[in-house]
């Protein structure tokens, strides 16, 4: 019980200290879990993080589940995950309330019109960064162009694209394996 509470509090602390995406969480995880608490080794943490990136879901949540599960089994995984999302729920609920009350404010509207522009630039940067690691050959470029255009010109669900691309990757790798 004490151990579970400790898991929850540790991951709540990590959630509250993370600004931005899962990638921003890595240095905090290293400090809190490897250096201070010695719950996992550096190598284990990198493995969890890599798998967290390639399995469905938010990276921060996946990594928390992994480490919690290693400490205290399935229940530990669930508790660590609840811990890492707890600060988000509290902070965002407060922020949302505040913004709804000031939705008519001209200053707020102007601020958000400016902020939206910065968000577009941040998304563009994220895509460029992903491009370097995700698209390694011609097949990658074909998949990118196909899904990008389908997603813009049709109303099909993204689920369809994800399943289709996974299947295409599986078949492509298998064929390469047969040839070589």
């Amino acid at each position: 019980m004490k151990e579970l509470l400790n898991l929850f509090l540790t991951f709540a602390r990590i959630g509250a200290l993370t600004f931005g995406g899962g990638y921003a969480m890595l240095p905090i995880l290293q400090r809190e879990l490897v250096d201070q608490r010695k719950w996992v080794t550096e190598e284990e943490l990198m493995d969890y993080f890599a798998i967290g990136q390639t399995t469905p879901g938010v990276i921060a949540v996946n990594t928390a589940t992994f480490i919690g599960q290693k400490r205290k089994g399935t229940l530990g995984g669930a508790i660590a995950t609840l811990g890492v999302v707890f600060p988000s729920i509290v902070i965002i609920s407060i922020v949302a309330m505040f913004i709804n009350n000031f939705a008519d404010s001209v200053i707020l509207q102007n601020a958000f019109a400016g902020i939206r522009v910065s968000v577009y630039v941040l998304i563009l940067n994220a895509v460029l960064k992903l491009w370097k690691s995700a698209i390694v050959d011609k097949i990658g470029i074909i998949i990118f162009i196909a899904i990008f255009s389908l997603s813009i010109f049709t109303n099909l669900s993204p689920i369809l694209f994800i399943v289709g691309a996974g299947l295409a990757g599986f078949i492509a790798k298998r064929q390469q394996g047969v040839v070589s």
Binding site: L130, G140, S151, F161, I162, A165, G166, G169, F170, R174
Partner: peptide, 12 residues
């Protein structure tokens, strides 16, 4: 293989 296809799709 599955992830080889998923990564470009997710980026797109």
């Amino acid at each position: 293989g599955v992830f080889y296809g998923l990564r470009p799709a997710s980026t797109a």
